[in-house]
Design a protein around this nucleic acid. Sequence first.
DNA 1: AACTTGTTTGACCAAACGTTCCAAGATCAT
DNA 2: ATGATCTTGGAACGTTTGGTCAAACAAGTT
Lengths: 203, 203
Amino acid sequence: MAGVKQFDKEKVIDRALAVFWQRGYEATSIQDLVEATGIGRGSLYGTFGDKEKLFLAVLDRYVEKIGSQLMAALSNPDPRRAIARMFEVMVNRMNDPGYPRGCLICNTSLECPGGSDTINRKVIEQLSSMESAIYQVLLSAQAEGLLEPGRDMRALARFFVGAAQGMAVLNKTSADPSLLSDVARVALSVWDCPGREVAGPTD
Amino acid sequence: MAGVKQFDKEKVIDRALAVFWQRGYEATSIQDLVEATGIGRGSLYGTFGDKEKLFLAVLDRYVEKIGSQLMAALSNPDPRRAIARMFEVMVNRMNDPGYPRGCLICNTSLECPGGSDTINRKVIEQLSSMESAIYQVLLSAQAEGLLEPGRDMRALARFFVGAAQGMAVLNKTSADPSLLSDVARVALSVWDCPGREVAGPTD
DNA sequence: AACTTGTTTGACCAAACGTTCCAAGATCAT
DNA sequence: ATGATCTTGGAACGTTTGGTCAAACAAGTT
């Protein structure tokens, strides 16, 4: 073998992640990526194929770096604390100026442009894997008697995912650190609610 | 005066609204708008100035047609019912196949492209006007003794806005009608919570 | 009927887009 | 050293973008 790569592929993905996260998929041009990564057009295409394939690699990286933190929080043995830690991790990261605002998965899910099925599938897969993880935590909470047996666990899991997405949206439009902790605190408080969500319509 | 318009400006805005709502601002090309509205390029530019100004008109129209329904629901004299009706209106509309998925305001708020300040300002203004309206409802609930005096009304209002945004995101990725009503039902249940959201950190 | 005023249409423009391609350079095996 | 192999960077390509413009047209006014 000869002609060895002059750059670290993982570092390039990280740089690309930062740009895609901040600007979105469509709004990020190849030129942006060239400047952000410091490598040439040819190297980008030679290494990743095309823009979409690079973005898929970036999505994987995001799940691996960011999503895994949520999953780790959810694996806390105390179910109540698992959910609480998940929100805590989210709030801390979103309020950390070192990260771009919002959530890449959330941003991408709203970038409809009939965008590639592969991308959309990956986004949906990620959201539903988060819902499953939360659902399992709730089930074990129920098994331990920490949640009333009558409560709708599926609805609760869906709600927590929805709250997380809502926080991602708010974080994109406002930098107020208290905003996210307010939302997270109230969202978590449903845990201690009388099980009203089993009822029918909203009134 | 002579040379009279051959089309209904309001109808054009409605058609443009449908396209922007479905595809997003950046992803909608002038050509898309020409085809959707049925009028020529020149007429579009002659009437609205440019793409951004047209979009601002579309945003106004959205607030007037869709946002107003939420505001109307919030004006219900019974505060508890006002919030419930707001969610009900949202769920019904989002599950109505006659409307594009998601929420134009929410979609736009995530389309960062350093997009025009005017657009961003309008989006933020709309979100904060929704929060204010909810906040006022909560205050009057508190005044009527329907909510414990110790609860954090600002946090509650922020939470309800966040939940609404989260629902918009979920609605964009899934068409399951039960999903949104699940989330809305749980979100509303915080009303009947013991006032735990006044506490400090999430655990 | 002629003129004025404004609208409509589609050709046209420069810029930016994602992608391709190739000459030049770098590294290893021999 | 020489050749083979792969990488690199930038020029170039075709397409699409938002925006402009002028000629053709329709409707009032006189």
